[in-house]
Simulated assay, not measured.
Amino acid sequence: MKIVIAPDKFKGTLTSFEFCDIFESTFQKLLPKATVISLPLADGGDGTIDIAQHYLGGEFISKEVRNAYGVIVNANYLYSESTKTAFIEMAEASGMKTIVHNDLNVKEASTFGTGELILDAINKGAETIILGLGGSATNDCGIGMAKALGYCLLDESGNEVVPIGKNLPKITKITSENVHTQLFEVNFKIACDVTNPLYGSNGASYVYAKQKGASDSDIELLENGMQHFSKVLDDYFNINTQEIIGGGAAGGMGVASKTFLNGELISGIELVKELSNFNAHIKNADWILTGEGMLDEQTKNGKTIQGILSVRPSPTKIAVFCGKIAIATKTLDTLNINYAKDILSIAEDLNDALTNTKQHLHILAEQFVKNEFAEANFAKS
């Protein structure tokens, strides 16, 4: 009997490592002859860097960089000397977590600090850089990052433009004479979990800028800037930026990663599955146990559980454990989920579920093993 444990975190209450530990210990106690493989996962969002370290090894590098508003902060990224691979979360330098939320003013924000982290990794000798998009406080189409890497962004008078979102309409020319000489020797993989285009009603500015502090007039300014700058990018890189799936991610960093970095945009969960050698590990598995904080309609849009469902081999069964299941039983059947339980079903209330997540998951784990592996002949396997 082969069991693969492959969860995402329950944000704020349980790490994917803790989930694995709970189920591992349960199987060791109740079914010690089972072969259990733990593969903690993430979907590319905040915290993916810890999962990356689990598979890549390496060490965390701390560097002083500018946050989205130019304030010096300490940001960390992961670097593996043996594989010459760096894992950078842009949220470390250019994210909402680095600023005071009541001071949000996205049109003044820049991704310069993310560029500083990339530059440091290149100088360390990185040959592959994995860049996680998400949690950003920016809407500058990556011009701050580009500036840090040596690109020049000029206005019609030939003057350099300060690389912040509100200045996108001023840029008329890009030059690359001062770009770091090793930039295009690096293989960039970009963890991107949204499909939004750069601009338009479903683009970066209209969908995400408000939560980063933009007023209605700010959004119009940023939207106009995105549309204007996209034409500059199209001409310089001979590309149609609006056709880039996920181009609007992280305030246009999807497009910036594709153009300025020549990066490959990949679903975050697909990238983590690649790091974990997931597809090889699940061969001949009898069960895959997974979970995340919420199982809802968003699960089908690039989340960890969907990433597992998309590749699970037949006749492998899937068990899902969540904080809350917010989809109908019929939908579970459609997704071919064989077993699903949530913590809210046994907790007294939401506060109990959030406060005692580990204890409740222990209970669900024991219930699952006792219910699904009750046959006596399992002990002989």
Rank of each mutant, 00 (worst) to 15 (best):
Q227A: 10
H228D: 08
H228R: 09
K231D: 09
V232A: 10
V232L: 12
L233D: 01
L233K: 02
L233W: 07
D235P: 02
Y236M: 10
F237D: 05
F237W: 11
F237P: 06
N238M: 10
N238Y: 11
I239A: 06
N240K: 15
N240R: 13
N240V: 14
T241R: 01
T241E: 05
Q242R: 08
I244C: 03
I244F: 07
G246N: 06
G247W: 02
G247F: 03
G247Q: 03
G247C: 08
A250S: 15
A250H: 05
G251F: 03
M253G: 01
G254I: 05
G254W: 03
A256W: 08
A256D: 09
K258M: 10
T259W: 04
T259Q: 04
N262H: 15
N262V: 07
G263H: 06
E264H: 09
I266M: 12
G268F: 05
G268N: 04
G268A: 08
I269F: 09
I269T: 14
I269S: 00
I269Q: 01
E270P: 00
E270F: 02
V272H: 04
K273S: 09
E274F: 12
S276K: 02
N277M: 11
N277L: 12
N277W: 08
F278P: 01
F278G: 00
F278K: 00
N279P: 02
N279Y: 05
N279A: 12
N279R: 13
A280R: 11
A280D: 14
H281C: 13
K283Y: 10
K283F: 10
N284Q: 13
A285E: 09
D286W: 06
D286H: 14
D286R: 12
W287F: 15
I288W: 08
I288T: 07
L289H: 03
T290M: 09
T290S: 12
E292D: 11
G293N: 08
L295C: 13
L295R: 02
E297H: 14
T299G: 06
T299C: 11
K303M: 10
I308Y: 04
I308E: 01
S310P: 03
S310Y: 04
V311D: 10
V311K: 07
R312W: 00
P313F: 08
P313N: 14
S314G: 05
P315S: 11
T316G: 04
T316Q: 05
T316L: 07
I318A: 01
I318D: 00
I318W: 01
V320Q: 02
F321N: 03
I325P: 00
I325S: 07
I325F: 03
A326I: 00
I327D: 06
K330G: 09
K330Q: 14
T331R: 12
L332H: 11
L332W: 11
L332Q: 12
L332P: 10
D333M: 12
L335E: 02
N336V: 10
I337R: 00
I337L: 09
I337P: 00
N338S: 15
Y339E: 01
Y339Q: 01
A340K: 06
K341H: 13
